[in-house]
Write a protein that binds this DNA or RNA. Structure first.
Lengths: 158, 158
DNA sequence: GCTTCTCAATACTGGCCATTGTTGAGAAGC
DNA sequence: GCTTCTCAACAATGGCCAGTATTGAGAAGC
């Protein structure tokens, strides 16, 4: 039974540590597969063969067998979600808790975090993306701050 | 005593790579000094002795000589700014380009980035901070996206 | 046809070690 | 008094290596 993976497919480093936690390794192939889904965005679902083809097109060769293995692995880690189609054949898409915008309040002193949402942030991200011609995938706002407890411990009032 | 959950995103890794780029090392002492200034926020300026004392209070022992060396180092790297007081004695504060909100558009495919600003983001951060009783230090919005060139290369319309 | 298995070749990791940048105390300089 | 220098002790890194998870091709299973 796989370990509970809390953080969605975020940074490359997240994937690495998730894998290491299970004594597994981060390989270019695994990165390529996950990265492909991240580039596609959330709604998209692909079959193993499609993943294989797309990676080939992107000049990121990964053998079909490895694609299958990796899809299964990433699913078991919760980073991908498996869809069983009635017509036969399976599809995969980005894991469920992948909000396009999820934000964190991080205490720089003790490291504790709070999560929050705010549509205004996504709007700002979309505005900037559109201004520069980018296609937005995900917005992550990190607010570096001091939590109530640590703020009290710090002997200074700015 | 607070329990560290995960390292605050932002500068820990930045500092490391900046140092490595110069063939220098990331040590706990350097982290402590920089971290102290980050906790203080932007307006604050401290003398070497004050830094030393505050670190002692925080049970983060760093020798005075090292404090001096580190302050000089961080200044030369632009992470701190040196203020020469007319009365004699120098003070240090967080480097200038440390905006309380600076945001990035990052292409997840080629890695290129664009920077932008948007007061709405800072507002959102402040709202969240205030809601949870946090004292905001800095807002960093990371928009994961595809740049125009890479968006074109990706053969899919979501 | 889609998916998994086999097995030799490959390569990611963690551990260990030498290199050399850093630190701590106290002396020395200004 | 504030800041820098000296030097032995310390420790962050990079390189190297063995251990072993992973990959690629093709065969085999469903």
């Amino acid at each position: 039974m796989p370990v509970p993976v809390r953080s969605p497919a975020g940074s490359p480093e997240d994937l690495r540590s998730s894998l290491h936690g299970r004594g597994q390794r981060l390989t270019p192939q695994r990165q390529r597969v996950l990265s492909l889904f991240e580039r596609l965005g959330e709604g998209r679902h692909l079959s193993a063969e499609e993943v294989h083809q797309r990676l080939l097109q992107a000049e990121e060769r990964v053998s079909l067998a490895t694609v299958y293995r990796t899809l299964r692995l990433l699913s078991s880690m919760g980073m991908l979600q498996e869809l069983e189609l009635p017509e036969g054949g399976r599809r995969f898409e980005l894991g469920g808790d992948h909000h396009r915008d999820h934000h964190h309040l991080v205490c720089v002193r003790c490291g504790c975090t709070e999560e929050f949402e705010n549509p205004a942030v996504l709007a700002a991200g979309e505005a900037a993306a559109s201004l520069h011609g980018f296609r937005l995938l995900e917005c992550v706002l990190n607010v570096r701050a001091l939590c109530p407890r640590c703020a009290q411990a710090e002997p200074n009032a700015t």
